[in-house]
Amino acid sequence: MLTLNHFLALGAILFAIGLYGLLSRRNLVAILMSVEILLNAILVNVVAIARFNDQAQGDVFALFIIAIAAAEVAVGLALFLNVFRLNGVATVDPLRRMKE
């Protein structure tokens, strides 16, 4: 028998994997890929809770999450291209000087 908890557990595991990638990667593109995994973990949770409560709002919200994630990727990758042009590498290391 598949229950809501199965899907929530899958979402939690994917969230942890994405968080690990977010913290351990130095390359900006790799960090964005980790953020994508985080977003998909949330997506699994949202759709699962919506289906098990028999509500359509959750699925509608999932569509908005996917659309906003696509916009975020487009803008993020354009920014990373600028970071690469300015510094020669697209990692978080040259961005440290923003702290100074």
């Binding site: 939690a12 595991i13 969230f15 942890a16 994997i17 968080l19 690990y20 913290l23 351990s24 990667r25 130095r26 390359n27 900006l28 593109v29 790799a30 990373f80 291209l81 970071v83 690469f84 590498v89 697209a90 990692t91």
Partner: peptide
């Protein structure tokens, strides 16, 4: 961005991920 290879930072961050998971 010619970044085909990416090193990992401290693998201790796996502990943080586990603490959240």
């Amino acid at each position: 961005t010619q970044s085909r290879f990416s090193q990992l930072r401290n693998p201790l961050f796996a502990a943080v991920a586990l603490l959240v998971a």
